[in-house]
Design a protein around this nucleic acid. Sequence first.
DNA 1: ACTAACATGTAATCTGTTACATGATTGA
DNA 2: TCAATCATGTAACAGATTACATGTTAGT
Lengths: 181, 181
Amino acid sequence: MLELAILGSLAEGPLHGYELRRRVERLSGHTRPVSDGSLYPAINRLVKRGLLSRHSEPGAAATRRHVLTLNDAGREHLLERLRDPAPHEITDSSRFFTVLAFLSLLPDTAGQHAVLRRRLEFLETPASFFYEDERPLRAEEVEDPYRRGMLLTARAVNRAEVAWLREVLDGGPDGPGGSGS
Amino acid sequence: MLELAILGSLAEGPLHGYELRRRVERLSGHTRPVSDGSLYPAINRLVKRGLLSRHSEPGAAATRRHVLTLNDAGREHLLERLRDPAPHEITDSSRFFTVLAFLSLLPDTAGQHAVLRRRLEFLETPASFFYEDERPLRAEEVEDPYRRGMLLTARAVNRAEVAWLREVLDGGPDGPGGSGS
DNA sequence: ACTAACATGTAATCTGTTACATGATTGA
DNA sequence: TCAATCATGTAACAGATTACATGTTAGT
């Protein structure tokens, strides 16, 4: 996931590691710090795979900087990942949000909407959080007050995201269905 | 985090691994599968640390079962973790929800509310998601439609959880402040 | 002199995933 | 007989964290 965030952040322009870290942290609202020990090895993996180019530059205020550029192979790889996210990138909210942050990079609205539809479908699937033994769980039947809170919060989250997705997909100002699938 | 979920699930009664997996998966609304490769090693770590006791039992329909029991040391460890969660267990929603699922195990309302207050304080802290360069980010100024969606969804989530926390902490039917701190 | 921000890395360790490996019972 | 469910584990690998390690520049 860090790798996707790195590739996406570099799609907007070259950055060096230190600045890249800030961009990636901003994606999570600065709630998930990115450590040196995960950032630099991730960068090196991407360079080794030929997705990023690295060239040195005299540091602005300190040691030499390594400016990272997303090359053609990297851009292609990024677009493929965005176009066809893995199941857990649809299912896990924090991963999905990383995909969403860069979804505009896909050149066609149809491709963007296809991803949003997968998320919507997941959110509307019975059998997850709100379901217990094949039937919907009602807040009143959860005796534990904190588990009730989990349920209420999860419902609110679900409703808000579903409403937004529906609006974008067929109620938005661009007209229903976007470019279609 | 898996370990906390295991300890918490066993606090309600002894279980064998296979059943335990289902309980743990239920906590995430069945959106995060727990693999054998994470479950059994985690159980073994907890047994090795002396937090769980394991005794064999003839399997109901298959191989022998290993019934796991949370022992005194395990219960004590669990209560300590619930009473004083690590920073990222307050900050990271999915981790916080795991804590929340078992928070009722803390014997005093004051201790429970202290944890909820930490979460509330975090959610109300400016400088996270909604903030950019020291000032609140407004949805209208986010040009990217998907990033705008992230912001709107995140706000809705935040509002719902803050409302629930405030209600529990000082507007709930138990009266303001619980047992106080 | 010291601290913060800039700047990049490695090593040990932890936690998790996927794939591999085994084996019994129940129902179609 | 074949698939599903029950039941438990290991091995290889991936990814992240913390701590360690180094070095500059700017401000107090």
